[in-house]
């Protein structure tokens, strides 16, 4: 690790000011990706601004027909929250499958989506459930948030404060994990919310994406069989020693079917 300056932000405004004033500064949430990155000397921030002490960023609450999760809420809290389990069991199931218990005890939803790792689980939930990302500046629709591999719509001094998930009628998540890292090779979240169907795929491509053909098929008939014949194109998908693009494309259909089955 290269050396850096560290400080705990007292408020979101304080953090935004600090990170806005210095383009070499980085925000530290749960640190589950950032700290390993620093250990490998793949990043050299001048300052780390720790969001861990800001109480307003933590917590889960039901607001009307949405579940709002503070950015610094840990995966374990989403996985075990009665509010989430009651309203969006697919989301607690997804959170329960992120990393391992120790990662879930530190990692946060805000950190995960701001990082936008192509193999992370949460982007599938945000996109598939048509969530709204709330920042210190604005509300960003899921469709506008994830831009490219490790790139989001966030400005330099913009901080995710919460994510608001509309409560779906049905939702399910299924993933095929990388056998070594346990990140998603392919993860598919399917949801029907207010009559509209979304199918969000993580792991397969450089950034989470919607599988529109499956959405259309499920819109007509909500069943695993309805999408059995929908083939994901391998074009543009990721390829590595664990899974080629062709295999990932195949798994998109398999996982989508399983997600539908899980959604009931």
């Amino acid at each position: 690790m290269y050396n850096f300056e560290y400080r705990q932000a007292q408020s979101v405004a304080d953090a935004a000011k600090a990170v806005g004033a210095d383009e070499e500064a980085k925000l530290l949430a749960g640190g589950m990706t950032l700290i390993p990155t620093l250990k490998q000397r793949l990043a050299k921030p001048s300052d780390l601004i720790d969001l861990g002490g800001i109480a307003e960023l933590k917590g889960i609450k039901r607001e009307g027909n949405a579940v709002v999760i503070g950015a610094m809420t840990r995966h374990v809290e989403v996985a075990t929250s009665d509010v989430v389990k009651g309203a969006i069991p697919a989301l607690s199931h997804l959170a329960e499958g992120i990393g391992d218990p120790q990662v879930r005890n530190r990692g946060t939803i805000g950190g995960s989506i701001a990082n936008n790792d192509p193999a992370a689980d949460y982007p599938a939930a945000v996109l598939g459930l048509n969530a709204t990302v709330i920042t210190n500046k604005r509300r960003i629709a899921a469709d506008d948030f994830f831009k490219a591999m490790f790139e989001t719509a966030l400005a330099a001094d913009e901080i995710v404060t919460a994510v608001s998930f509309p409560v779906p009628e049905k939702a399910g998540y299924a993933k095929f994990p990388n056998p070594a890292s346990r990140y998603a090779v392919v993860g598919v979240l399917v949801a029907r919310t207010g009559g509209a169907v979304r199918v969000a795929v993580t792991g397969a491509g450089p950034v989470v994406f919607r599988q529109k053909e499956m959405e259309a098929a499920l819109g007509k008939s909500w069943s695993a069989d309805a999408i059995a014949g929908v083939k994901q194109s391998a074009g543009g998908l990721n390829s590595d020693i664990h899974a080629s693009a062709e295999y990932r494309a195949h798994l998109v259909t398999v996982m989508a079917k399983r997600a539908v089955a899980a959604a009931g």
């Binding site: 560290y6 530290l28 640190g31 700290i35 390993p36 530190r106």
Partner: peptide, 11 residues
């Protein structure tokens, strides 16, 4: 339980 290799002492 947490991984002490993935947490800064200052945290």
């Amino acid at each position: 339980s947490v991984k002490s290799c993935t947490m800064l002492a200052v945290q």
